[in-house]
Nucleic acid binder design. Structure first.
Lengths: 130, 130
DNA sequence: GTATGTGCAAATGGTTTGCAGTGGG
DNA sequence: CCCACTGCAAACCATTTGCACATAC
């Protein structure tokens, strides 16, 4: 039922956000159970766990290859089609001998609704813009 | 002195790793102070805070634009030259109206020393390989 | 003396875990 | 009856914070 609700949502809920939703159908479920099952589902490859950038982890029912944008203001996330990375000129020694298994790419920005509310500038604190 | 030690190291230490190093020169320094100053230095743009992928945050004295590889086994990190991302065919609506400020790219792999020790396979749990 | 920065210890918050209970097979 | 799974609460761990004190100006 946790999986069902995650698939229904196209937001990328946090564990406790999903907990709130699932609790509407299973009022006696505990947050620990939600965490346990999300972990199992992620390991089984049924869902993806998005634990980037030190924030609260978010979960994604879409297991097709894709990247993400995250709002630096509110933490909301959205899907982005896979952005091709040019590694044509790289040898293994550009990676210091690491055997590369994968990559994680996350765009950072401001979502439409946060953009309206605050005229803030978010210079990304010492981070190159893109 | 925290900054000095971080610049001297080319590993990408965690806060407590750096704490251990700095404590050799300042035996009475506290971990809280290390955190406080790393935060200030990162905000001032003197260092970079690398808090990707839900692990313990790491700090980098190299503020030039570059990406990273992280060992999924031991957490060690290394620098990688900026990998160009092809966004030529993207309009703002591919990003769901997000105003893009930056990106974070992290390669995941196994570092040379972990590679020797364990013949393990690390299929990156339901993650596309790269 | 006033402001800034520190050590220390306690609080925080997301996540994990130990354990006893429960329900399905 | 057994076992996998659960609720619950406590533990965990990186990080942050409150506070009293120290040091520099």
């Amino acid at each position: 039922m946790i999986l069902e609700e995650l698939l229904r949502l196209e937001s990328h809920p946090t564990a406790s956000g999903l907990y709130d939703v699932v609790r509407r159908r299973l009022p006696r479920i505990s947050l620990g159970t939600v965490y346990r099952n999300l972990e199992l589902l992620a390991q089984a490859g049924a869902i993806r766990k998005l634990d980037m950038s030190g924030a609260e982890a978010r979960f994604d029912g879409n297991v097709h290859p894709h990247d993400h944008v995250r709002c630096v203001e509110c933490g909301q996330m959205a899907d982005v089609a896979v952005a091709p990375i040019d590694l044509s000129d790289r040898g293994p020694h550009d990676f210091h001998g690491y055997q590369i298994l994968g990559r994680r790419l996350e765009f950072l920005g401001i979502c439409p609704s946060c953009r309206q509310q605050t005229g803030h500038n978010h210079p990304l604190e010492g981070e190159r813009t893109c």
